[in-house]
Design a protein around this nucleic acid. Structure first.
Length: 416
RNA sequence: GGGGAGAUACCCAAGCGGUCAAAGGGGGCAGGCUGUAAACCUGUUGGCGUAGCCUUCGGGGGUUCGAAUCCUCCUCUCCCCA
């Protein structure tokens, strides 16, 4: 149990640390105080779309904020937008999203639930699918709901404004998205809605609708958007510039080390659990040159991996990293490519086939391209594009590019 | 309802009868240099056991020895007018 002082501190962090905006802070303080008085936990809502199920460090920022509320005794209400996923949130998009099939959505939702408790407290989490209420609405209900919003107001969203300016299409169903999200807030009686800054508009709509429908309006708490590891645009699964919280320690470590230096401060602040004063100290050291960015990044990578895999795995990932990139050796453990003796002709295999079995190339053409560029080696010897049939034995190491390693295992298959 | 513009690969965009698997840029991947950073240089970026062949330029049909390019119908998008 926390003492009174640490509650004070936790509150301060809740409102300020990794927060971009709160509307409004005063209202939130009041709600928190009242919740304390009445011993009624706040209902803290977060809506997620089960479109790309893997949770990454970008999602983690907001999920960890929810966790912070839970640690103070409040209830996290996680809405899986199975129904809204059929629409696709236009936020930050410059084009219409593809609508998913129901099967895909269900599968994604399952993966999501699986990963989310790496961060959230299961004891204080409610998970609901918004199809629960949307499925039941009749068209007349939808019209009544829609009548509470004006087109002018909905088109004020900057993504819509931009698209209009660029003469790009906006579908009617996309305009409904904020309406649906607002309705979610009403249905779960949210006290607080969390989201990244791009959610500002949607969350404000929820506030408005709740008031119109006789509820106290929710507080919006916005967290900053994390830039992806490419360093240019937001972290996103579909772009592929992400670090997933369910990825292997080695992957996480490596990806963290590959971010551009200029993202260091941002990642220290948003992606780690360093205390604000620690972040500040590191930022200062980077700015005045007393710390080497590479070393800070190394520390940070260890921290991030530890957050999701524990200290031990983190240390191992760090030492594997040193081993591979400093000493140019193979990692201790690597994925195995299982070959059967049937795959071989006189002990040899076509390199393209080998790469495809390893899932290291998307096609034979792609594989042979890699070989031509000298990216492929076996036991340290580059594969010659002119001699694409390579002799392999169990225990040999296949290396593709700078960082992908595989161990070859051959089983004697004489079944036919 | 009327008039106009448009749809080309992951994205932007050129091409407007053969020399087009399709310029250029971006992005991705790979190589060099590094710290799996940045910047820079180079290569590569539809598929196929690959000096050859197959499929691709919104979709169908046609003209032609030959079509991303011409004709025709369809689908979709944007703009202006009502």
């Amino acid at each position: 149990m926390r003492g009174p002082m640490s509650v004070e501190l936790a509150l301060e962090e809740l409102l300020d640390s990794r927060v971009a905006d709160v509307f409004t802070k005063d209202e939130l303080r009041e709600k928190l105080a009242r919740s304390e008085r009445e011993r009624r936990p706040l209902r803290v809502k977060l809506g997620v779309d089960p479109t790309a199920p893997d949770i990454h460090l970008g999602h983690a920022v907001v999920l960890r904020k929810m966790r912070a509320f839970q640690d103070l005794g409040h209830t996290g209400v996680l809405i899986i937008g199975d129904y809204t996923a059929m629409v696709g949130d236009p936020s930050g998009k410059n084009k219409t999203r593809p609508q998913l099939s129901y099967d895909e959505i269900e599968q994604n939702a399952a993966t999501y639930k699986e990963q989310v408790f790496k961060i959230l407290d299961p004891e204080r989490t409610e998970i609901v699918l918004n199809g629960e209420w949307f499925r039941k609405l009749a068209f007349a209900d939808v019209l009544r709901l829609a009548s509470r919003f004006t087109v002018a107001r909905l088109l004020e969203r900057d993504d819509f404004e931009k698209r209009l300016a660029k003469q790009q299409p906006i579908s009617l169903h996309e305009v409904m998205y904020p309406v649906m999200q607002a309705y979610d807030s009403v249905m779960v009686r949210a006290d607080v809605e969390l989201g990244a800054t791009e959610q500002t508009f949607n969350i404000l709509m929820g506030r408005q609708l709740q008031e119109q429908m006789g509820q106290e309006r929710q507080i919006g708490l916005l967290v900053p958007i994390l830039t992806g590891i490419c360093g240019t645009v937001r972290m996103s699964k579909s772009i592929g510039n992400y670090i997933g919280i369910a990825e292997s320690p080695q992957e996480m470590f490596g990806k963290t080390m590959s971010i551009p230096d200029r993202l260091l401060a941002e990642y220290l602040r948003l992606a780690t659990d360093y205390r604000p004063d620690e972040v500040e100290r590191l930022e200062r050291a980077l700015a005045d040159g007393s710390a080497n960015p590479r070393d800070v990044k190394f520390q940070m990578a260890k921290r991030i991996v530890a957050m999701y895999h524990g200290e031990e795995s983190s240390e191992l990932a760090a030492s594997d990293f040193e081993r591979v990139f400093k000493r140019k050796e193979a990692p201790r453990e690597m994925p195995v490519i299982g070959l059967s003796s049937k795959d071989l002709k006189e002990g040899k295999i076509w390199i393209a086939k080998l790469l495809r079995l390893a899932n290291a190339a998307s096609s034979n053409s792609n594989a042979l391209g890699l070989v031509r560029q000298g990216a492929v080696s076996i036991d340290g010897a580059p594969v010659d594009a002119g001699r694409p049939d390579v002799a392999v034995k169990s225990g040999m190491t296949l290396k593709v590019g700078k960082r992908r390693f595989f161990r070859i295992e051959i089983t004697n298959d004489t079944s036919d």
